[in-house]
């Protein structure tokens, strides 16, 4: 602090020309906004402004060219009776229910394994992280090859094991679970990294104390490690749920919503409604519906974690 005050006193003569406190405040604000302004303007202009505009569009019937027609809440009423949207919601929820617990469980398991002092850990870690940097486009194209019913590696493996051949992405029933597997392949690296960091934050002496008191490895995991991972689990659950609810890229690069609409997700539906059928108003309403649902689920998960006494936020 003394350095700080000394600095002020030293700097004072330079500012002696500034007559009043108000002018100095104005000058400081100009400097401050000179620093913060450009980025703030971009972020606000590219998110808060369009977010408000999207809400106004959602109250209109508009194709982007002809004059918009205000129709009140009609778009939102139409959503409730739209069977294609309900199907998209169902597919998205099925995907979320498959994807989130699996990515949490696998992430935790692999992180616990990688946290052991064993050989080859660096090799294992690199292998499991690398798919995370591959784009959804590349992952989707690679997956269409691996799961191709004729020349794909997946059916080759099944054949070697003497198991029946599958249609995978070309089957109405298998496509969504297969997309879930592909998403896990790309995303588990993320949960592993987050869990590894959390595991390394657990103080070693707590674990040792529990071992001294006669706890076996499972008991240490159950009563020391697992509670310590609580906050991270809340966070990763929320993060992965949001990711799952917004699934689009992988569907676009594998099935394009097919076969027979079986992998049409909410965001894919927004994309087709808005940019294929130019229903900007209805598309915005569905996007707002998804946003509201995501917020509700997130808040619900936070409240649940508070009730369970996990301090995550």
């Amino acid at each position: 602090m003394s350095v700080l005050f000394a600095g002020r006193r030293q700097a004072a003569p330079a500012h002696a020309a500034v007559p009043s406190g108000r002018l100095r405040w104005l000058r400081r604000s100009l400097v401050g906004w000179g620093f913060a302004g450009p980025a703030t303007a971009l972020v606000v202009g590219l998110s808060i402004f369009p977010a408000v505009w999207a809400f106004l569009i959602s109250l209109q019937k508009w194709n982007g060219i002809a004059p918009a027609k205000p129709i009140g809440w009609l778009n939102y009423q139409l959503m409730a009776e739209d069977p294609d949207l309900l199907a998209a919601v169902r597919h998205t929820l099925v995907f979320t229910v498959l994807f989130v617990p699996a990515s949490i469980f696998l992430g935790m398991l692999v992180a616990v394994a990688l946290n052991r002092p064993i050989k080859l850990v660096g090799f294992y870690r690199t292998c499991i992280f690398i798919p995370f940097v591959a784009s959804a486009a590349a992952t989707g194209i690679l997956a269409s090859f691996v799961f191709n019913p004729q020349y794909g590696a997946a059916n080759s493996v099944l054949r070697t094991l003497g198991l029946p051949q599958q249609q995978f992405l070309e089957s109405q029933w298998q496509a969504l679970p297969v997309i879930c597997l592909i998403a896990l392949w790309g995303q588990v690296g993320f949960t592993v990294v987050v869990y590894l960091a959390a595991l390394q934050d657990i103080p070693k002496d707590v674990v040792e104390a529990a071992r001294m008191d006669g706890a076996n490895r499972w008991q240490v995991f159950r009563h020391v490690t697992l509670p310590a991972l609580g906050p991270v689990t809340v966070f990763t659950s929320i993060w992965q749920t949001i990711t799952a609810l917004q699934l689009f890229d992988l569907v676009f690069t594998t099935t394009r919503g097919g076969p027979l609409g079986a992998t049409q997700t909410i965001v894919y539906y927004v994309y087709t409604q808005a940019f294929k059928l130019t229903k900007f108003g209805y598309g915005s309403a569905v996007a707002y519906g998804l946003f509201a649902a995501t917020m509700l689920i997130t808040v619900g998960m936070i409240i649940y974690s508070r009730r369970s006494r996990i301090e995550a936020f």
Binding site: T40, V44, S47, P50, V270, A274, A287
Partner: peptide
């Protein structure tokens, strides 16, 4: 700025496009 973190990009696509 913190508030914008919660806004999903899908919501912004249509007005940003316009």
């Amino acid at each position: 700025i913190l508030a914008t973190i919660m806004i999903p990009t899908q919501l912004l696509m249509i007005p940003t496009y316009v």
